[in-house]
Design a protein around this nucleic acid. Structure first.
Length: 485
RNA sequence: CGGGGCGUAGCGCAGCUUGGUAGCGCGCCUGCCUUGGGAGCAGGAGGUCCCGGGUUCAAAUCCCGGCGCUCCGACCA
């Protein structure tokens, strides 16, 4: 027993405890779960197969909903001519500092520099201008999955990398109402997927002028709370209004014989969601993956003493085969590792459910189930195992969401003064509800004084009124402040 | 982009103060042995000491410059 506990300590040493140093814990988990490797170019990472597997699960889940809401996938080029990029003033100003430029091609200097897309609005708008003539061409509902590049000053795996993977939806509509509906519809898709698939509770709302997307009329977002009490924007949706349509001349002849500009939206989620998964669900033993995004949902670890090795492996194999139609399952039959080593390895990687099977279990016609979320071990009968496993996975998914929701609730506070905001941020962090009159000066002042920014103006406003936390003006909107990633 | 920490074998680190044969743990390879929470023994392989200059008879070590990772701030999915 004593030996066991010392081994456990030894093991845990490889991952810095979350409470000791959250940032270090985060990179330790990423390393031990084998999600990425650092690439030779600053701020770039290789997403390794296991990490990419998570992204694939996220893609599947989101893509399905995009299709269900009438969108089609397409692909636009990575290079954008400088002249296109320059057209929308606010947009350029917002993105210019972080654009990577291609100046040479085939050994010769280009006559016009090419931007490596930081986002594709400008190029896609240029194309829409050609494609859209009539009200009958609308709406255009296109999404693309791609990489984008933003030359960031400081980078962190998944949270902010020079190149990242995402999807960007770009739609064009006949009316302002339609565009607004679309922007909100897609934000709701994000909310639903992030909560139900990633098991991360979020707050949906509108961004302030200060925080909105460069060139948008209005920006909406879903905001999540990380384990260290900082907020993370998990997805955004923009009503672009007619800014881009006017600049790129995207017009259509309406039914009333009038030439009009389209109304547009764009919306995106990125590999940053993987960072959110890690920071919301992970624990001191490593990654914890909700079953619906886990590349591997169940791992079977055979306990195979030499003399019974073949017998146990055969049973384990049969077990895995019996489940493979229902769940993503893998049999870990590597002979060079001990069961204990495998337990730790798969736990670090966040596999939701482990099945242990050894001679003693076989004798009793049972297996041992071990949940990653609770660590709970249960001996269950092989009879009806399939149903049990599926049910267990569903319960893990639900438990993770419930746990994250409770954490968010417990770390959501109210403040009426700067001092209160400061105190909360210093002692507990988390999300802070406060009143805001709507003035930029007040928003800036809070940031200046406390470091907290307005994450969003939530759609769901609590009862009652609050005074502006800065200027004291009554009848203010209730907004959520936090320190953000 | 400012401030701090770090860069030595695949990973984690010691050595650097006070210059003089490059080390430890884990991992890896071979064999034996073993499997219910990171087993054991024996043998073995593996190094541009981040890069470039400089000082010196001699640099992982001292000096200058760069790059990268990381944390904290300013800017962003």
């Amino acid at each position: 027993m004593e030996k066991l506990s010392s081994q456990e300590r030894e093991f845990v040493k490889e991952i810095t405890p979350k409470s000791e140093d959250f940032a270090q814990w985060y990179v330790d988990v990423i390393r031990k779960a084998d999600l990425i490797d650092y690439a030779p170019v600053k701020g770039c990472m290789v997403i390794k197969p296991y990490g990419y597997g998570i992204w694939e699960r996220i893609q599947e889940a989101f893509d399905r909903r995009f299709k269900e809401t009438g969108h089609q996938n397409a692909y636009f080029p990575i290079f954008i001519p400088e002249s296109f990029f320059q057209k929308e003033a606010e947009h350029v100003e917002g993105f210019a500092p972080e654009v990577a430029w291609v100046t040479h091609g085939g050994g010769e200097e280009l006559t016009e520099r090419l931007a490596v897309r930081p986002t594709s609005e400008t190029l896609i708008c240029a194309m829409y201008s050609k494609w859209i003539q009539s009200w009958r061409d609308l709406p255009v509902l296109i999404n693309q999955w791609c990489n984008v590049v933003r030359w960031e000053k400081s980078t962190r795996p998944f949270l902010r990398t020079t190149e990242f993977l995402w999807q960007e939806g770009h739609t064009a509509h006949r009316t302002e109402e339609e565009a607004e509906e679309e922007a909100l519809r897609m934000l709701e898709v994000y909310r639903e997927r992030v909560e139900n698939i990633l098991a991360i509770p979020v707050i949906a709302g509108q961004k302030t002028e200060k925080e909105k997307f460069a060139g948008a009329l209005r920006t909406y977002s879903i905001e999540a709370l990380m384990g260290d009490g900082r907020a993370l924007q998990a997805g955004t949706s923009h009503n672009l209004g007619q800014h881009f349509a006017k600049v790129f001349d995207i017009t259509f002849l309406d039914q009333d014989d009038q030439l009009k500009y389209v109304w547009q939206t764009s919306w995106g989620v990125s590999t940053r969601l993987i960072g959110a998964l890690i920071m919301v669900h992970g624990d001191d033993r490593g990654l914890v993956l909700p079953p619906k995004v886990a590349p591997l949902q169940v791992v079977v670890v055979p306990i195979a003493p030499r003399k019974q090795r073949e017998m146990v492996l055969a049973e384990a194999r049969a077990l895995a085969v019996g489940l493979e139609d229902r769940v993503q399952i893998k049999l870990d039959d590597r002979p060079e590792y001990t069961p204990g080593w495998k337990f730790n390895d798969w736990e670090m990687r966040g596999v939701p459910l482990r099945i242990e099977i050894g001679p003693r279990d076989i004798e009793k016609g049972q297996v041992v189930l071990v949940r990653r979320d609770t660590g709970e071990k249960t001996a269950v009968s092989r009879e009806g195992l399939e149903t049990r496993v599926v049910r267990e996975l569903e319960d893990i998914q639900a438990t993770l969401f419930r746990r994250a929701k409770r954490f968010m609730d417990e770390n959501t506070h109210q403040a009426e003064t700067f001092a209160e905001i400061k105190e909360i941020l210093e002692e507990r962090r988390g999300l802070i509800w406060a009143g805001w009159c709507g003035k930029r000066e007040c928003e800036d002042a809070v940031k200046e004084e406390t470091g907290a920014t307005i994450r969003c103006i939530p759609f769901e406003q609590p009862e009652g009124t609050m005074k502006c936390v800065c200027c004291g003006k009554g009848e203010s909107r209730k907004v959520v402040f936090a320190r953000a990633y």
